[in-house]
Design a protein around this nucleic acid. Sequence first.
DNA 1: ATATCATATGTTATTTTAGTCATATATGGA
DNA 2: TCCATATATGACTAAAATAACATATGATAT
Lengths: 104, 104
Amino acid sequence: MEHTVETYKFFFGALANPNRLQIINVLRGNKKNVGEICQITGFEQTMVSHNLKTLEHHGMVFMEKKGKFRYYTVNKKTIKPLLELIDAHMKEYCCKLLEGEKRK
Amino acid sequence: MEHTVETYKFFFGALANPNRLQIINVLRGNKKNVGEICQITGFEQTMVSHNLKTLEHHGMVFMEKKGKFRYYTVNKKTIKPLLELIDAHMKEYCCKLLEGEKRK
DNA sequence: ATATCATATGTTATTTTAGTCATATATGGA
DNA sequence: TCCATATATGACTAAAATAACATATGATAT
């Protein structure tokens, strides 16, 4: 299925970036506005905004305006089971491999 | 969790590529050797080998030698539920978005 | 109306990733 | 042993993704 491959690439592309993943991780707890995300991660504001836009565009996070703030929430329905699945995978297949990566 | 972010990036990085996804898709049916994968996909042999190596390194596929052939199988335990999860996500959040992508 | 704070957008330079080409290794058969 | 087939590896280039910078927009308060 050609369509399917493009679909998956769209999905994974959004998540194959450490900064976006870290943002997701921060949002796993509670909704946060951009400034809060910057503060917690130490990332620069424009970079965070760019990445939030990508994540929102892919349905990974949702946005809600509140005065001059914008609050972002993670899409728990997708992200939670997804990360759990990955945890299980990594535990079983990749633990040593990742160690190797780090040394590079 | 710093470790977790690197872990997830490792995972998604392997899958954020259309050719690798297509190879996975081909392997979803049955185990196949490199030549067969090339034939089915129309991809060049060295490219397929490179990508299979990446997939194997990430625990997404397994390899089994048989004479001068090497048979690859997809890691169904991870891949199957993963793709199902993504199907559900895309259906709910991304159907129009993907259409937009195609026009670019 | 303007100043300030919060966030977004456009552009560019840099880094990362991927594919290709040339070549190497491994296996089995004559 | 030598050849053919199957697959892997290394190096190089091209293309895509990313972060950083400059700037714009939107909102609130004064």
